[in-house]
């Protein structure tokens, strides 16, 4: 069966793309035509993505380079990287970085702990739980944390009656720190989901082989385990970073738009809290967000390309 698959894989594509073997012209033509026919069925999908994703995204980027009258300008970007907007970019990146970092560490420990147990119930409980909680977010999450460690939250009051006042010790749920904690609720499960497959792909044969070759446990981790897990960990960090960076609902619901984060600022601009002369500033912020996510995505793709074949 595998042999067959391989043969199928290697057989030249019907589109005849880039085969160096000279072919009669007629065959190539026929091949091309068939190639187009093959793509035809996917055109609705491509068109849909084009209209409802590419058009809005491109229009944001294009508008970012125009002033109110449609002339080319960079002034929107100039504005976007100064004052409160620069601060919000920095705050957003800081928040996403710290939140992702914490989730990477905690999620990794949890994934390791789960993988090292042979208890099937614990395993499936954590896997199912992670799948569910990674999808949590938005407004309900914000309010459930308000109920927990908000000004009048249950845990806040419990600690108060135990003699410890969270809020007089500098903690606030309605701050960047608070958000970083709330974000853990979907970032940690996401990390667990991402890391379980690569951790479980570590094969016992590698441990046995390294042991029989004279390696100690720590040498196994130093030369095999960690080099194999590092790329997925790094890739996971980037996924978590972008996830946190783009999050809007939780922050908006928790802080009523008072916190200086890029999505919040952009939301405020859209909702019409715009000062005169800032017509296309929002588009510049949007373009900036896309840029940051694209950079993260490129780093992610590079890591994946280099190492995705290691752990299979």
């Amino acid at each position: 069966m595998t042999l067959n698959d391989e043969l199928l894989d290697r057989s030249p594509s019907p589109a005849g793309d880039g085969t160096s073997v000279p072919e009669p012209a007629g065959r190539i033509l026929r091949g091309r035509r068939r190639g187009w026919k093959n793509v035809a069925g996917t055109l609705p999908f491509i068109a849909y993505l084009g209209v409802f994703l590419a058009v809005p995204a491109v229009s944001v980027i294009a508008t970012a380079f125009q002033d109110g009258k449609g002339n080319l300008t960079l002034s929107n970007f100039n504005e976007a990287i100064h004052g409160v907007y620069l601060k919000s970019f920095i705050a957003s990146i800081q928040l996403s970085f710290v939140a992702a970092l914490v989730a990477v560490v905690v999620g990794l420990l949890a994934a390791l702990a789960v993988s090292s147990t042979s208890n099937k119930i614990v395993r499936s409980l954590v896997t199912a739980g992670s799948g569910v909680f990674a999808n949590t977010g938005g407004v309900p999450l914000a309010f459930s944390f308000v109920a927990t460690v908000g000004n009048f939250g249950i845990v806040t009051k419990l600690l108060q009656s135990a003699g410890f006042d969270l809020y007089s010790h500098g903690f606030s749920l309605y701050s960047v720190t608070g958000l970083a904690i709330v974000y853990q609720y979907f970032l940690i499960p996401l990390m667990i989901l991402i890391m379980l497959p690569p951790i479980q792909a570590l094969r016992k044969e590698w441990v046995d082989a390294s042991e029989s070759l004279g390696a100690s446990r720590s040498q196994f981790w130093r030369w095999i385990g960690i080099p194999l897990l590092a790329p997925p960990i790094f890739a996971a960090f980037i996924v978590l970073f972008t996830d946190a960076f783009a999050a809007y609902a939780t922050a908006q619901a928790l802080t009523s738009g008072t916190i200086p984060l890029v999505p919040i600022q952009l939301g405020a601009l859209i909702s019409g809290n715009v000062l005169a002369g800032q017509t296309n500033l929002g588009d510049a912020l949007g373009a900036g967000m896309i840029l940051i996510v694209v950079i993260a995505g490129l780093i992610y793709a590079t890591i994946q390309r280099r190492t995705s074949k290691w752990l299979r």
Partner: peptide
């Protein structure tokens, strides 16, 4: 995933 939903919204409004 590349275009945050806030940005999509802005694009929807403009286009």
């Amino acid at each position: 995933l590349v275009v945050p939903s806030v940005v999509v919204t802005l694009g929807v409004i403009t286009s």
